[in-house]
C-alpha cells in the first residue's frame, strides 16, 4: 500500500512516472534511476522492480550485465580508457593522475575502448569526453567535480 512505500520508492516512482510499464522500458528506466542516484543499489533495483512490475531477480540480472551501471560508490564516475590505442599514448599516467587527486566525490574506472582513438588518450566523465587528455586536464576535471 502507498503509505508503506519507502521514500526511495516514491522518488523512483516519480522519476519513472511517464514510462510505460512494460519490459521494453526496463533499460530506459534503469538509466533514469542511474542518472539520478549515480548507482543502482539493491534498494533502488527493488524500487524499479516494484514500479515496473518485473521480478527483482530479472531486474538485477539485467542491471548487473552492464558496465556503466557498476558504480557502487554513487560518486561521479570518471572513465579512463586504458585500451590498446589510448595505452600507446600514455593512458596509464592519466589513471595515476586521476587516482592521486581523487577525494571522495569521484570514482575512477578503467574503460575498454571509448571510441575516441583519434583523440587518444581519452577520458569520459559520464557526460562529456576529454580528448587528448593530459594529467593536468584530468586533475582539473576531478577538482571541478569536487567543488561542484
Amino acid at each position: 500500500m502507498d503509505v508503506q512505500k519507502s521514500a526511495m520508492e516514491t522518488t523512483v516512482a516519480a522519476r519513472l512516472n511517464d514510462l510505460v510499464r512494460e519490459r521494453g522500458q526496463l533499460l530506459p528506466a534503469l538509466w533514469r534511476v542511474m542518472e539520478e542516484y549515480r548507482q543502482l543499489s539493491p534498494e533502488l533495483l527493488e524500487a524499479v522492480s516494484l514500479f515496473m512490475d518485473i521480478p527483482y531477480a530479472e531486474v538485477y540480472g539485467v542491471a548487473s550485465f552492464y558496465a556503466l551501471f557498476e558504480n557502487a560508490s554513487g560518486n561521479t564516475p570518471m572513465y579512463v580508457c586504458t585500451d590498446v590505442m589510448c595505452a600507446l599514448q600514455g593512458a596509464e599516467s592519466l589513471k595515476e593522475a586521476a587516482k592521486a587527486n581523487l577525494g571522495t566525490k569521484v570514482t575512477v574506472h578503467e574503460s575498454a575502448c571509448l571510441g575516441q582513438c583519434d583523440y587518444a588518450p581519452a577520458v569520459w566523465s559520464g557526460s562529456h569526453v576529454l580528448r587528448r587528455a593530459t594529467a593536468d586536464d584530468v586533475t582539473a576535471a576531478v577538482e571541478a567535480i569536487t567543488h561542484e
Binding site: Q25, L27, P28, M34, V62, Y66, L68
Partner: peptide, 25 residues
C-alpha cells in the same frame, strides 16, 4: 533512441534485440 550501458556484446544483432526488449543482452 535506445542508449546502451556498456556491453560490447550488445552490438551483436540478436543481443541488441534482447537489450531493447529489456532482457540481458
Amino acid at each position: 533512441i535506445r542508449r546502451g550501458a556498456g556491453a560490447y556484446i550488445a552490438g551483436e544483432e540478436t543481443a541488441l534485440f534482447n537489450s531493447i526488449e529489456g532482457k540481458r543482452p
